[in-house]
Design a protein around this nucleic acid. Structure first.
Length: 500
RNA sequence: GAGCCAUUAGCUCAGUCGGUAGAGCACCGGACUUUUAAUCCGGGUGUCCCGCGUUCGAGUCGCGGAUGGCUCACCA
């Protein structure tokens, strides 16, 4: 094994002149290790403790031996003694090397070690004169030689472009980044437990769709070679999950990636994570309850309180959140009552208020524009906006007392729409009509309008129980709980253009 | 897609009026057996994002392009 590596290295060394000095130096040390019969890329290594365990249980562990492993993050050499910081997943701890305890030969090995190398050590736990809990190294093993220098030790890696493209480096040198993703993992775990505790079953439905349904969005297309057919990456799992309600599942949820072929911004990534859940024999009010309960529960689990701070603003997630009809909200914030207008009247009012809408904008389009302009920027504390027009809610059930509105809601926090839910439309005849309207929109050139899904209609014809449904944007939820202003801060590998 | 801004050493950043580039960390050599942003002595390691232009001369000025950030648009 060692011989094979040696062979490869000598070949590589012939091109060595082209390597930057910093890289060449490390390759030379690597070669020196190989020459002295040391495998620079180690093997399985069993530790007895983590850095954090030693720091937290020092009283009991003092003067005992521990075996730990991790990456060397800094080195302070003092001739015949040296200090280093070892970082593992739990934290950092100081190592102390001394020629007396290690022996001349082993101490010399330090010459071939660099910041960034991954090592395993066994040593004695003690406290230095200055009071720092440390491990005096008795045995040292190189587990992986690092061939590239790490970014600077106290400014870290700041270049945003590099941080995203080389997230692995970002994670090594910026500990707060790891914390964000640990919190992300916790949030998802809490959600799964929360839903499981309430009888929701986690399911997986296709990501490759022949019809991109369940949301108003442009899909990505892909191609299946063997079947020679184009497929869409899913924009939502909704229509599959509701087929499961038809099939007799009472409560289901799916958490996973959605793909939308749209712009990229601080709040949008082409692939993002959503959790959709459906409750048979329930309705929108149940879904609003579960939304506010989930948010409050996560806040309590993470911070022990429902009060959180986002970018300096205090947000109180304690339920119940207010419910406000969309048209009432518009009236309240803009002073304009759009209730009961037709398309032309709505466009006229938009013109008067300098709200730009398209030539043939519908009443619903105008409502949307007014909402975005006057209402959305004001919705900082959690609130449910309810009762959306039927034209923009093709899968939601109409309100009993107003068939032009639907029993739908969208919760807003810090001006972001963080979820979307409604009482599900289970009338196949109405649903078919709604799809037909969407198809007509499509033919007029709206490539975000829904497509006809005949099989879904067939499913509804077998009978779907009345139900409430909800889609929670997980990325935005994580942004809120980690105080991250950009979605890229909560995605390990946000989408980037390739570098030429 | 549009506007504004950024891009200089491995990293974080300076760079004046247009005159052939500089600091700290890292790295290399030396000293140092409890340091911790270790210290002390010595060493600058570069496609100034790319291309074209203006100029005797461009990191610096102009035009075009690339990538990124922010804002807007699009979009839930």
């Amino acid at each position: 094994m060692v011989n094979d590596q040696q062979h490869d290295l000598t070949e590589e060394f012939e091109e060595k002149e082209e390597l930057h000095e910093l890289l060449a130096v490390r390759r030379e040390k690597l070669q020196a290790l190989l020459d002295s019969g040391i495998d620079p890329f180690g093997e399985k290594f069993e530790r007895t403790h983590t850095a954090k365990e030693i720091l937290e249980h020092f009283e009991e562990l003092e003067e005992q031996n521990a075996t730990i492993s991790g990456r060397l993050m800094s080195m302070r050499t003092h001739g015949k003694a040296s200090f280093a910081d070892l970082m593992d997943h739990s934290g950092r701890i100081q190592l102390y090397f001394r020629v007396n305890t290690l022996g001349e030969k082993n101490y010399e090995l330090l010459q071939k070690i660099d910041i960034g190398d991954i090592v395993g050590i066994t040593g004695r736990i003690f406290r230095t004169r200055r009071g720092e809990i440390s491990v005096e190294v008795l045995e040292l093993k190189i587990l992986s030689k690092s061939l590239r220098p790490l970014p600077e030790k106290w400014h870290g890696l700041k270049d945003v472009d590099l941080r995203y493209r080389q997230r692995y480096v970002d994670l090594i040198v910026n500990p707060n980044v790891r914390e964000v993703f640990e919190t992300r993992s916790k949030i998802i775990q809490i959600m799964r437990n929360f839903l499981a505790d309430r009888g929701y079953i986690e399911v997986e439905t296709p990501m490759l769709h022949t019809i991109a349904g369940g949301a108003t969005a442009r899909p990505f297309t892909t191609h299946h070679n063997a079947l020679d057919m184009d497929l869409y990456l899913r924009i939502a799992p909704e229509l599959y999950l509701k087929r499961l309600l038809v099939g007799g599942f009472d409560r289901v949820f799916e958490m996973g990636k959605m793909f939308r072929n749209e712009g990229i911004s601080t709040k949008h990534n082409p692939e993002f994570t959503m959790c959709e859940l459906y409750m048979a024999y329930g309705d929108a009010s149940d879904m609003m309850k579960i939304t506010e309960d989930i948010y409050a529960h996560i806040a309590n689990e993470l911070f022990g309180t429902t009060k959180i701070t986002f970018q300096g603003q205090e947000i109180d997630l304690a339920p119940p959140w207010p419910r406000k009809p969309l048209l009432d909200a518009i009236k309240e914030y803009s002073g304009i009552d759009l209730k009961g207008l037709n398309d032309a009247q709505a466009r006229q009012i938009a013109k008067e208020k300098n709200i730009e809408v398209e030539e043939n904008a519908s009443y619903a389009n105008v409502v949307d524009e007014f909402f975005d302009a006057f209402v959305e920027p004001k919705l900082v504390q959690p609130i449910f906006i309810v009762d959306h027009p039927v034209e923009v809610s093709p899968l939601a059930k109409r309100k009993k007392d107003d068939p032009l509105l639907t029993d739908r809601f969208e919760p807003f926090i810090v001006t972001w729409e963080v979820a979307n839910g409604f009482t599900e439309l289970n009338d196949p005849i109405d649903q078919k009509g709604r799809f037909s309207d969407q198809v007509a929109q499509r033919e007029k050139g709206d490539d975000e309008a829904h497509m006809m899904d005949d099989d879904y209609i067939t499913a509804l014809e077998y009978g779907m129980p009345p139900a409430g449904g909800l889609g929670l944007g997980i990325d935005r939820m994580v942004m809120l709980f980690t105080d991250s202003p950009s979605i890229r801060d909560v995605l390990l590998f946000p989408h980037m253009r390739p570098r030429s």
